[in-house]
Amino acid sequence: MISVKKVDNRPLNFLERIYLPEIVRGLLVTSRHFFVNLFNPKGMPTVQYPEQKLPLPHAAKERTRHRLKLRADGTPKCVACFMCQTACPAYCIRIEAAEYPDNPVEKSPAVFDIDLSRCVMCGMCVEACPEDAIAMDTLEIPGGALSRAQLKLTKEDLLMTLPGDPSDKGAANRLANEHMKSRGEA
């Protein structure tokens, strides 16, 4: 439903044009909030983020800061296929690929940067990933940094396993699983 609000653009009358009564009216609103909140701080809707956090509703948990998942042998699940970089509407992912000398997975990311100051938290990278290697489930809400540089995540910042994460057991990648099995790591 679209609601329409009609704005009455009549010319200001004399009392409004001298401003003083309107300023007093505005100050009264401000002071009412000030005193109400002063004597009843529990009623304030403001949350002191980041010291204080509200529990996230279910869907929002999947839209928190990114991480890159790890396999059981500690290698990133990411194979640097560039799907997320391609899908990202904000152009905030930058990948450079490298080659494993021995691991038959062949390809891995040498560089994996996410610029959170550009990220729009849309989750397209998670959707696009064919290896289930990127997730947005760290429950950290990015923001509140003092410089843009602090909002830049590198591969080292991103690679992490969360407690109870089943992702390092088996992967979408058959070659990786076989490689781990052959070395007794699966």
């Binding site: 194979v79 640097a80 296929c81 799907m83 997975v105 062949e106 390809k107 064919p130 290896e131 058959r174």
Partner: peptide, 10 residues
């Protein structure tokens, strides 16, 4: 093989 993610031809 399902190599498209690591295949340059993709």
């Amino acid at each position: 093989p399902l190599d498209c993610p690591i295949c340059d031809q993709a």
